[in-house]
Design a protein around this nucleic acid. Structure first.
Length: 607
RNA sequence: GCCGACGUGGCUCAGUGGUAGAGCAGUUGAUUCGUAAUCAACAGGUCAGGGGUUCAAAUCCCCUCGUCGGCUCCA
C-alpha cells in the first residue's frame, strides 16, 4: 500500500505521502523505499554537480544508504569543505531548474559508447549479465543506473552534504582509493532539521565525551592507542557490572576461573591461532630463549585446564567463565573510543559438553545472553545466525546439528534474527548479537560459537559410559562481549545517566549552610551503612550551584539539608529529572532506594 | 593500514609570520545563602613531538605520534 504511494509522490503529491510517513512510528519497507528513491536521485544530482564543476572527476557508484546517500568519485585533487559548498550551490541550481529524470534502456554496446570516458562504468557494464542495461539522464548528465528515480530534480526539497571520506573502489583495499561524499536528503525541511538535531543529540551522548565529562575513563597517547585507563567512577561501574555478572554466573551453573596473560608460542601453534589469527596477535617476547605471546583469546587456557586431569561423562557439561583480559592488534584507523580497542576484558566462557547436551546448553546460553542484555536496559538488538562457510572443519552432520541447535534456540525464544549464510567461523556456526551506539552504528557484543576445531586440535576427551574416550563439543560464548565495548555502549544507551543500581554516586547530600555539616555527615554514614553510595557537598556555595553540579554529574538523587531538615530529622529529596519530592523521612528514603535498585535491574530508567 | 580533517593551559575555544588570549575548572580570600552558575584576586601553556624555511614560526614546509569521519550495504 505504501509502495503504491511512491508514484503519487513522484507525480507531485508530496502532501499525501509525507503525512502518511509521519504517522508511522517504526521503519518499514515502505518508508525506506520512498526515501531511498529520493536519496538515490539526490546522489545523481550531486554527481551531475561534481561533473559540471570538476569535469576531471570519474563517476563510480552512488547508492542510497541508511540515513542518506553517497557518491564515490575518482579525482586526483581532494574535495575540500569549500568544494562541498560549491557543489551544494550547484545542486540547488539543478533542483531549481527542475530537470526531468529520463529512463533509457539500451544495449550494452551503446552503453559502452555513452560511458567511453568513464572506466568505472565500463567495468560495471561488462559485469552485467543482461544484454540490455538502463541509464538515467537528467539534462546532460547520464548515469548507468537500475533506478527508479524521482520524476524530476525539483522534487528534492531538503538536502545537505555532510562529509568527505576515502573509500576503496568496491571496498577492496587492493583497489584505488576514491573520494566519497556523504549527504542526506528528506521530503521536507523539517525532517532534515530533525535529522541534523538527532546528529547533535548523538554527539552529546558520545561515550568519549561523556567519559571525559563524567571522569569515567581515559586513553592516553603515551600509554598507547586503544589501551584504556578506568578512572575511579568508571571502575566502580565496572565493579558493579562484574559483581552482578559473577553472581549470575554462579546462579547459572558456571564456575569462575582465572588464567595467565601470556603463554608460549607453541601453545598458539597447537591451537592454530598462529596461523589463522596471526594478523591480530602481537609479536612474541623472549623469556630465557623461549618465545611467549600475550594472549588474544582465553580458550587454550581453559582447554589446558580441562586436560589437567581425566574427565568423566558424568562431569559434563563443564561451564568455565572468566573475565579474561586479552590483547589484539587492530589497525590504527579502526580504533574507536571504548568500542574498538587493543586491550580488553572479555566476559568469556567455554562450555564443554556431549553432543546430546548441545541443544540444552545453547538454549541456556541464549537465554542467559538475553537476560544479561535486558538487565542493562538493552531491549533492541540485531541477531545474526552465521552458517557454514567454505573451508570449514568438522563433519557436515555436526555442523547441521549445531546450526539446528542455534536456530532452534532462537526460535524457541521467539527472537527475530537474520541468517548470514556462509559467515560462520571455519570451526563452527555462531550467533552474534549486536547493539547500537548513539549514531545507530551496530557493535557486536554477545557471541555464541560452536567449535569443532579446538577439541580436535588439543585432543580433549571424556570417558564415556562405555569406558572409552570421546570428544566433547566446545561452545565459546561472551554475553557482554568485552567490558570496554559494553561500557561504551552502556554510557551511550543511558546518555551517562546510569540507572540507580549502576550509578557510581547514587546520592549527593548538599547543605544550605555549614550549620548542617554534621547532620550531612551523619546521613552519608547512615546511607553507606545501608549499602548506598553517597557523597556530601559541604562546600561554601549556594545550593543552586551545588544542584547544578550534581545535575551535570548525573547523580540520581540530591538530598538538600538546611535548618528545617535538621530540625525535623528529614531530608529534602530532588531527583535527577528535576522533580522535587519534598521532605522525606530517611528510613523511608533508604527503603525506596533499595526497592528502586532491585526493580531497575532489567527494568527501565525511572528518572 | 589507506583517504581526508584536526591537535593552543584540566575542559571548551580565539589567535594565520612580529612579546601566547578568553570563559569554565583550580588555588586563595570574602560571602552562610533553600532547588541548574555569589563576588574578587591569583596561579596555570617548550601552542602534540622532532626537523626545516625565515631577522622572526602556534601560524609556512617535511617527518613522527595521536584524535575524528570514512573505507559492507553492488549501476
Amino acid at each position: 500500500m505504501i509502495k503504491s504511494m511512491v508514484p503519487l509522490f513522484i507525480d507531485g503529491m508530496q502532501e499525501t505521502y509525507s503525512k502518511h510517513m509521519s504517522q508511522r512510528q517504526e521503519k518499514n519497507e515502505g518508508e525506506s523505499n520512498g526515501l531511498e528513491i529520493l536519496r538515490h536521485s539526490t546522489s545523481h544530482i550531486m554527481a551531475q554537480a561534481v561533473k559540471e564543476l570538476y569535469p576531471d572527476s570519474k563517476i563510480t557508484i552512488g547508492p542510497a544508504i541508511k540515513d542518506g546517500f553517497y557518491y564515490d568519485f575518482d579525482r586526483d585533487k581532494p574535495f575540500t569543505t569549500e568544494d562541498l559548498e560549491k557543489i551544494e550551490k550547484r545542486m540547488e541550481e539543478i533542483i531549481r531548474v527542475d530537470i526531468p529524470f529520463e529512463r533509457i534502456e539500451t544495449s550494452k554496446n551503446k552503453a559502452r559508447e555513452i560511458f567511453k570516458n568513464e572506466m568505472y562504468k565500463i567495468e560495471l557494464i561488462n559485469e552485467i549479465q543482461d544484454e540490455k542495461v538502463s541509464v538515467y539522464k537528467q539534462g546532460d548528465f547520464v548515469d548507468l543506473c537500475r533506478g527508479p528515480h524521482l520524476s524530476s530534480t525539483g522534487k528534492v526539497k531538503a538536502f545537505k552534504l555532510l562529509s568527505v571520506a576515502g573509500s576503496y573502489w568496491r571496498g577492496d583495499e587492493k583497489n584505488k582509493m576514491l573520494q566519497r561524499i556523504y549527504g542526506t536528503s528528506f521530503f521536507t525541511r523539517e525532517d532534515l532539521e530533525k535529522y541534523l538535531n538527532k546528529l547533535d543529540e548523538a554527539k552529546r551522548r558520545d561515550h568519549r565525551k561523556l567519559g571525559k565529562d563524567l571522569d569515567l575513563f581515559s586513553v592516553d597517547e603515551d600509554i598507547g592507542s586503544g589501551l584504556v585507563n578506568w578512572h575511579p567512577k568508571g571502575a566502580l561501574v565496572r565493579y558493579i557490572i562484574e559483581n552482578f555478572w559473577r553472581e549470575e554466573h554462579y546462579k547459572n551453573g558456571y564456575q569462575i576461573v582465572y588464567s595467565p596473560h601470556i603463554a608460549k608460542v607453541s601453545l598458539w601453534h597447537t591451537s592454530g591461532h598462529m596461523s589463522f589469527y596471526k594478523d591480530n596477535m602481537y609479536s612474541p617476547m623472549d623469556i630465557e630463549g623461549v618465545p611467549y605471546i600475550v594472549k588474544p583469546m582465553n580458550c587454550p587456557f581453559h582447554i589446558k585446564m580441562y586436560k589437567s586431569r581425566l574427565k568423566s561423562y558424568r562431569e559434563l557439561p563443564i561451564r568455565w567463565a572468566e573475565l579474561g583480559t586479552v590483547y589484539r592488534y587492530e589497525r590504527s584507523g579502526v580504533l574507536h573510543g571504548l568500542l574498538r580497542v587493543r586491550g580488553f576484558t572479555q566476559d568469556d566462557a567455554h562450555i564443554f559438553c556431549r553432543l546430546d547436551q548441545l541443544n540444552d546448553e545453547i538454549e541456556r546460553v541464549l537465554h542467559f545472553t538475553i537476560y544479561m542484555l535486558r538487565s542493562f536496559g538493552f531491549n533492541e538488538f540485531d541477531i545474526y545466525l552465521s552458517t557454514m562457510p567454505e573451508g570449514y572443519v568438522g563433519t557436515i552432520s555436526n555442523w547441521e546439528k549445531a546450526t539446528g541447535a542455534l536456530k532452534g534456540a532462537l526460535e524457541k525464544f521467539g527472537l527475530k534474527y537474520d541468517i548470514d549464510p556462509g559467515a560462520g567461523v571455519f570451526y563452527g556456526p555462531k550467533i552474534d548479537v549486536k547493539i547500537k551506539d548513539s549514531l545507530e552504528r551496530t557493535w557486536q557484543c554477545s557471541t555464541i560459537q560452536v567449535d569443532f576445531n579446538l577439541p580436535e586440535r588439543f585432543n580433549i576427551t571424556y570417558i564415556g559410559e562405555d569406558n572409552s574416550p570421546h570428544q566433547p563439543i566446545m561452545i565459546h560464548r561472551a554475553l557482554l562481549g568485552s567490558l570496554e565495548r559494553f561500557f561504551g555502549c552502556l554510557i551511550e544507551h543511558y546518555a551517562g545517566a546510569f540507572p540507580l543500581w549502576l550509578a557510581p554516586v547514587q546520592v549527593k547530600i548538599m547543605t544550605i549552610t555549614d550549620r548542617q555539616n554534621d547532620y550531612a555527615r551523619k546521613i552519608v554514614k547512615y546511607l553507606s551503612d545501608s549499602g548506598i553510595r553517597g557523597e556530601t557537598d559541604l562546600r561554601n556555595e549556594k545550593v543552586g550551584f551545588k544542584i547544578r553540579e550534581a545535575q551535570m554529574e548525573k547523580i540520581p538523587y540530591m538530598l538538600i539539608v538546611g535548618d528545617r531538615e535538621v530540625e525535623s530529622e528529614t531530608i529534602s529529596v530532588r531527583k535527577r529529572g528535576g522533580e522535587d519530592m519534598g521532605k522525606v523521612n530517611i528510613e523511608k528514603f533508604i527503603e525506596n532506594i533499595k526497592e528502586e535498585c532491585t526493580v531497575n535491574k532489567g527494568g527501565v530508567l525511572n528518572s
